[in-house]
Write a protein that binds this DNA or RNA. Structure first.
Lengths: 136, 136, 136, 136
DNA sequence: TTTT
DNA sequence: TTTT
């Protein structure tokens, strides 16, 4: 009936862009979301898989990078498949319909995979992207 | 950093109340949340596991029943354990800190496990419960 | 950058459907949302104005009624106009893009404005409506 | 019944810390939240008043500054008072119970009111604060 | 009355 | 001005 998720966290790796056999773009990445109450001062986070589709997938693949602070809006989805041992496996992901880049290309990731320059990023401001036409 | 989930759905079964070795109440139930766009008119839902703790756990165990329309606020949490084959298994759950009963004891579940009467339910109105002191 | 609201409450009156000069449907209603902590047992609520547009406006006008328990997803919007004394007035509303009817036509409002029968309502289950193409 | 708001935006001014007659800290600030669809490329935002209480109020007053990108979780509240012409005025605010600083003290505000140094800010990472015991 |  |  209603299924809404909002996350703010950092990418654990560069996003991965792939295409379905029908040619639809899909980008997957994982957000590390720090837990609010780290009881004994331990560092704890949830690593939440996020999936985006179509235009949003391509924008995410182009402009998100490992370590970037990112806000995601979407819904929880659970899919299942049978693994190579014939056992049913359940995968829980957040299907995002709205992603906000909270850090520019020039911050948040010192060294590493920072290769492509962000043409939309003017003077370190965030870029907004939205997608209303979800594929499913 | 920020991790917020809001769901509205129906319980797939009666909730299960258990206690940790330290005596803390934990209630688990699953919400069936219908997907918004059922493309070819097929019936589709996500079955999302929900966990509540302490006072909220006991209230949920007392007043929620299979089939009831229920709103849940919480956060996504991923825990892992090693199964009996020594393989690491990841479990994704919504840890709820706020549950709203959207249906009274006298609706939503015709027959079945409807045994205990709800003393708070006056003339079919919802009951609000909140819990701010999460166990972790 | 990100602006998301989720409410569950009851309509204070029947919704009002109007049309813009360009013929676009707009429906306005107010949700009474009970406050969580009624400190001294007092009854308190916020009365939050909600606006829907186009197809969603027409569905709301047709199926929502005074007293019905309703879930709304949307965003906060503040508009202003100059009143007849030439003073600027600010109005805060929730622009909804998703409305869920949590009560059927046969509950929640005993007597009163209950006239039209809901053709979508089968056996008292909620009806889902969504609108992704907001007018502004 | 349920009233949840999540915003990401920038402070229009430095926050204002005051105390109630009973000595309770209250901090008010306004978030400029850019609208998602700027139809004709116009620059548009909603300016949403936010209120925090107690410990959270003091932390916000200490570490938030004009221009900072900030995430806020809370609920919509409408209060009213009679103005000096004896007319009832309604004020809509977001009462925050969770604020996330998305920008360090060393970014986002070049020049201006940037005076106090943030002791919690280590290497430009955000700081999380939470408050569960709202005053009302 | 507003932020970048 | 408000709902149950």
């Amino acid at each position: 009936m209603l299924n809404r998720v909002i996350l703010i966290g950092r990418l654990t790796k560069d996003p991965e862009l792939r295409y379905t056999p029908a040619g639809v773009a899909v980008t997957q990445f994982t957000l590390a979301v720090d837990r609010p109450f780290t009881n004994q001062g331990q560092r704890e986070a949830d690593f939440i898989p996020v999936v985006t589709w179509r235009q949003l997938a391509e924008t995410c693949a182009n402009y998100l990078r490992k370590g970037r602070l990112t806000a995601v809006e979407g819904r929880i989805q659970i899919r299942n498949y049978d693994n190579n041992e014939g056992k049913r496996v359940y995968v829980t992901e957040v299907i995002a319909d709205n992603v906000r880049f909270l850090e520019s290309a020039n911050s948040g990731n010192r060294g590493g995979s920072e290769t492509n320059q962000d043409p939309f990023q003017v003077d370190g401001r965030p870029v907004d992207i939205s997608q209303d036409d979800l594929p499913f």
